[in-house]
Write a protein that binds this DNA or RNA. Structure first.
Lengths: 232, 232
DNA sequence: TCTGCAATATCGCGATCACAAATCTTGACC
DNA sequence: GGTCAAGATTTGTGATCGCGATATTGCAGA
């Protein structure tokens, strides 16, 4: 953050290189910058980033521990190819975890938190109307986690994040079928219902709304997207 | 696995060193071989294992990505010190995930699977009567995962394993209060009720039994064990 | 005995090198 | 033109080295 010192100097950032590489890869993965199935090699990536391959290897280790990168038999890593089956499993886990988190959060949210959530909600609606899929996904992430953050269980948030790291890249396929008019994506988007339920302090309804949002989004992806193994 | 070849030679195992180190650390962590708060340095561990520090660093990266090791501000890692708060959060997540997994598994288990589960169950009962806490924990792990394995959702199993890596070391504290007579641990152990519910194909009851088993075990630990920050 | 401080040892981090296995390229031969 | 094997290149893996920062130790003075 380069804070100003009394001498007007900025602080040297001591963030390790492997950490920067890791964060950069997470960003790239979640924003769908890599193609599923793409092979990543430490040396090439290192050259591209201007580092040695050591920090890249560290980042690879962390990412494949979280299943955000898939290990290949020979030790290489690749961007995971998600099958329809695995996608369904991840969706099922999401409904369980995110449904529970929403339910818990609803009971703990107060006025201040609610205002921030409302802001994220309207920004999400706006993004859908504007038609930028990247912006929509970013706002979708911000909105949902602005709720989960209040579930009072840091461990649960961590697990949800790991699942998002796996599905995240694939959510881009939500765009398919909405190329002409992204705003109609709001037909399968229940985030305003979620906000309404939270305002009414109705935890069960909030959970149901989030689950429905996740399930219908996933169903749409399963209809539209091409999965490996399926005939093209 | 050192398969026999046609010349009677055993295959050179090509498992990378960093993988072996990782597996060794997982085993040591889950069996409570390390003290919470203990600092682990790559160089020392490498010397002890007879390798360079590179494979150890790789293993550290993976383990701290999964939160099985805690990163220190200077980049070192330590065996996580679990607070009462974090323990409660992990328990809450466990009831959600393992409850769901049990419910799903109950609907998919057939006669063959059931026989294996029954065997694990009786071995667990036996271990409690024999009074060896290590054996009991090992059998407890084997029994529960023999159920979860059939939930049909590989992703869920992975998440459960992640959570177990964090609580695993701490479950040893279950022994506290049962030093004289481990068999009385069966009073807060509902694994036979779980088996009965599965046999009856009653998914809801199976979930309730697992949740109760987890909750009462955790409650016992919270009563008996010493947590950092608590007066003691 | 306790406290401050300097000398020393240890450690994380990243670069570089060596080696073997895997992968790709090339070109001769059928 | 297609096949396959030899050679070249790339890649994972692990060891070693150096740098800077941190932690530890040892000692002197109060």
């Amino acid at each position: 953050m380069a804070d100003r010192t009394q001498f007007g100097l900025s602080a040297i950032d001591s963030v390790p290189l492997h950490e920067k590489v890791y964060l950069e890869l997470v960003r790239a993965l979640m924003s769908g910058q890599f193609t599923p199935g793409q092979k990543l090699t430490s040396r090439k990536l290192a050259k591209e980033l201007g580092t040695s391959d050591m920090p890249v290897r560290s980042a690879f280790m962390r990412l494949q521990a979280l299943r955000a990168l898939s290990p290949m038999p020979n030790g290489s890593v690749e961007v995971p190819v998600i099958s329809a089956d695995r996608f369904s499993q991840l969706t099922a886990v999401r409904t369980i975890l995110e449904g529970s988190a929403t339910e818990l959060a609803t009971k703990r949210i107060n006025g201040n938190n609610l205002r921030a959530i409302r802001r994220h909600s309207s920004e999400l609606t706006l993004a859908a109307r504007e038609g930028d899929i990247d912006d929509y996904l970013r706002k979708n992430y911000a909105f949902k986690f602005s709720i989960y953050r209040h579930c009072g269980n840091e461990q649960m948030i961590f697990l949800i994040e790991t699942v998002w790291m796996q599905v995240g890249p694939f959510l881009r396929n939500l765009a398919m079928g909405f190329e002409d008019d992204l705003s109609s994506i709001l037909d399968i988007d229940y985030h305003e219902e979620v906000v309404a339920a939270i305002e009414a302090q109705d935890a069960a309804r909030a959970r149901a709304a989030i689950v429905r949002d996740i399930d219908e989004g996933a169903a749409h992806i399963l209809r539209q997207a091409r999965f490996p193994g399926a005939r093209g």
